[in-house]
Amino acid sequence: MGGLSSAFGSIWATFLDLFDPFCGRFGIFTLFGDGSLLACGVDGWGDEIGFGVKITMALALATLPLGLIIGFLVALAAQSEEKSLRLSAGVYTTIFRGLPELLTIFIIYYGLQMLIQTVLAAIGFEQRIEINAFLAGMAALAIVNSAYSSEVMLSAFRAIPKGQYEAGAALGLSRTKTMLLIVLPQLIRIALPGLNNLWMILLKDTSYISVIGLSEIMRQTGVAARNTKEAFFFYSIACGLYLLLAMLSSFGLSFIDRWAKRSEVGR
């Protein structure tokens, strides 16, 4: 078992060694950074920054589905016929759209941990639940993101005519099925441009998580800048990396956009 996993590990390591975009055999820092501040290994900061890029991407990718799901539920509540649901959704969006991201992150990072600890202590559960910076960042960003995405989805909900629901009911579909089979596919298509925008915002907002100590792009370049006193160089690298991620994203997003619009072609 151990042998198998270590064999798998070494295959994975070889794979990464070959295809790591930063410090792999053909990585940009290996090819162009050698001997400079961006070299890989102990002399340069290439591997640290490459690691930061991966954390940033992992954080953004992990947060997105969470944010979208919460946002969808909030939007669902906000357009419900039930007044109390509308009100609680309103409180949610008001609070988290109004707070600076930086503040939300601080509050979640320290507040959530204390809240969980207090609740657990109250029910006599004396274990320690550790929320690391990655999870706290994910939670905070998902909340901020969901407040925005609920707005986008709410306006998309309003763009779907009532007749669609009625048609679903006329076909004898249950309300859940109407939502999943009729409304949601149209909703996604209408909301897509807004959601693309949200992804870009999310990508940039990950930079705030550096203040609670997660080793993402901003943090790693900041450490490099302070250690080498080459602040201009490293912060330019940081900007460049975000730009690169944005460009890659717009490439991917245009692909999704075309896929979502495939049925409209020819009209």
Binding site: W12, A13, C23, I55, E126, Q127, E130
Partner: peptide
């Protein structure tokens, strides 16, 4: 190379880590 291994380690503790009560002992 080293960073990729560290990345795996980081990703694995991204799951909610439950440090057992022994930490208080």
């Amino acid at each position: 190379m080293r960073s990729s291994i560290r990345f795996l380690a980081a990703a694995s503790f991204a799951a909610l880590s439950l440090v057992s009560g022994a930490a208080m002992a």
